[in-house]
Design a protein around this nucleic acid. Structure first.
Lengths: 339, 339
DNA sequence: TTGTAAGCGTTATCAT
DNA sequence: ATGATAACGCTTACAA
């Protein structure tokens, strides 16, 4: 493979001149510049980014750190969409994206800083990390620029992008209340997720606002997992058969709730209205289609990329970004049955 | 950040010795090795992979080249699963994965070799490329080690991993024949996909084997797109209402067929049996659930990674790998109605 | 406008 | 067992 040295020799100039010509400096005579470019093309030259990275001390790569990307975790397409958004914006901005997959267990083996240093990324986007994951604190303390998805932490080198989760939950629950529901259950994720804390707030707020008592026995958690949610819901719906609607902190858990309802011969939406969160791919395909709060994960990814690159260029006036959500009614919710 | 130079100074040895000690060479005295390791830890050292890459002329990264990864292309989770498989096996084998997203248009801008050279990947896995994409020929001619997904081309630096698509199609059609169907339509992808050519073979073989005429009017294409397939099927089913079963070269197109059937008041599976291909996430969630030919994209990804790394180490006895598929009957197929 | 030379952090060659 | 030194391909003062 041709190097600038080869070009220099062939064009009868020094490597310095080649470097400057190819990088568009204007202190190279037009004629020599032209000659150099021609030779470069002839030799089918393309620059060695590794060498450039070494001397410039920047790799033009962004690390996308996703937590627990697993074989079966592909059930929802959200991570994929975030990734696509990151990748697209990266290539538009001239960056590469490298994927870091990490589990909580692995985080104890290798520090975040080590990971980043080794891979030599300029900045990191972190998605799906839990609030008690070891990396979170490291991210904040580290001086490596980082953007967190769905964790609103701001620090000199840390920004975030998220949506208004409490408002989304509020709207969802208010929709149920509007349909006449009063005994509304809540299937939350787990409390190590920031979004769960927020969605809980929204749920409680909506109830209080409408003078409906918040009943702890109506709340349970499904760990953002379909099977676990199914079991939790099976318990809950048996113990509190007066519940006529369930608000769930993810679509996947909503499917679990639907399955539990089926096992208990409770029909959705006639006997039980179900609301999810995310508007994942499946939501519009299942029967009945799922009422949910839509987010745009692609947008989250591209926005996070935008932000991290701005931070790398020290242009980040604002290190946070709140994206919009949209309540999306479908078939899984209906007016409460009058009995 | 600490470099081996700093360690050398602090430990009172030369950089050479530090390098050797840290890389586990056995020509370093135990005691000095121990001292060096301690100092390294104290200084919180981690190696600069960029510098190492430059001198070793290998980056320990694999490029995953996916064609046309788009915002809406996330409808099936297959790419995601391949990616997950690649990523997992990569990290097990000590490699990084960087994602290259390219469209046919972009391929005319920058050559494959340029792309690879710039990013300095050691090897490439190519997924979702069409047989007439400019890159395919380049891949074959290039000396950069490459593994193709679903394109059976072998060359000194090229291997592939795929499944037996003609056999998969054969089994699917034979299933329909076994249910009594004789007028079986075929919704193919497009002929720039190797898998489409194979699935067509399997379709024709199964019919011939059972002495059923192959009728060109029963075949159409949907470009692997749900909407296009819906329109094609709408035409087809109107023009040939005697068709009682459709075999589709992808699940997504099968959903399109189902939608067309709905518009024509043809009920699935009573009036029309539908078979897909892939066993994508949605297949088991839709109503009726979709009979399909399952592939394991995660496995395809990890196998491709395995192969490319073996090729990089010159240990590839065999540069190809055929993975298994599995016919998966569900609710969308049933015995032909007797009228 | 162009060239010389140093340096980025490693590994590898060859002495000692 | 250890160390000097060159080399990887590039950018960038500084000099001419």
């Amino acid at each position: 493979m041709a190097t600038i040295k080869d070009i220099a020799k062939a064009a009868g100039v020094s490597v310095t001149t080649v470097s400057r010509a190819l990088n568009g400096y204007d202190d190279v005579k037009e004629s020599t510049k032209k000659r150099i470019v021609e030779v470069a093309e002839q030799l089918n030259y393309s620059p060695n980014y590794v060498a450039r990275s070494l001397v410039m001390n920047q790799t033009k790569t962004i690390g996308l750190l996703v937590s627990g990307l697993s074989r079966n975790g592909t059930k929802d397409n959200i991570v994929m969409e975030v990734l696509t958004g990151v990748d697209h914006r990266c290539s538009e901005l001239g960056y590469d994206m490298v994927l870091f997959n990490t589990t909580t267990a692995q985080q104890k083996q290798k520090t975040y800083a080590q990971l980043c240093r080794e891979r030599q990324v300029d900045g990191v986007i972190v998605q799906g990390i839990k609030t008690d994951d070891p990396y979170l604190e490291e991210v904040i303390e580290s001086d490596i620029p980082c953007v967190l998805v769905d964790i609103p932490v701001e620090a000199p080198t840390v920004g975030y992008v998220t949506t208004n989760n409490s408002k989304g939950a509020y709207e969802a629950v208010e929709h149920l209340i509007g349909l006449g529901h009063r005994n509304i259950g809540f299937m939350n994720g787990h409390n190590r997720a920031y979004v769960s804390q927020e969605r809980l707030k929204g749920y409680e707020q909506a109830l209080r606002m409408h003078r409906i008592p918040v009943i702890p026995a109506y709340m349970t958690t499904g760990d953002f997992d379909e099977r676990i949610a199914e079991e939790s819901a099976y318990e809950l719906l048996q113990q509190s058969p007066e519940i006529t609607a369930m608000f769930c902190a993810s679509d996947l858990m909503a499917f679990g709730v639907m399955k539990a309802a089926k096992r208990l011969s409770i029909s959705v939406p006639e006997d039980l209205s179900v609301v999810g969160y995310d508007d994942s791919l499946l939501a519009s395909y299942v029967t009945p289609s799922l009422t949910t709060v839509a987010q745009d994960p692609y947008r989250i990814g591209s926005e996070a990329t935008e932000l991290i690159v701005r931070m790398l260029q020290d242009e980040a006036v604002d290190r946070s970004s709140i994206l919009s959500h949209m309540f999306t009614p479908r078939e899984s919710t209906t007016v409460v049955r009058t009995s």
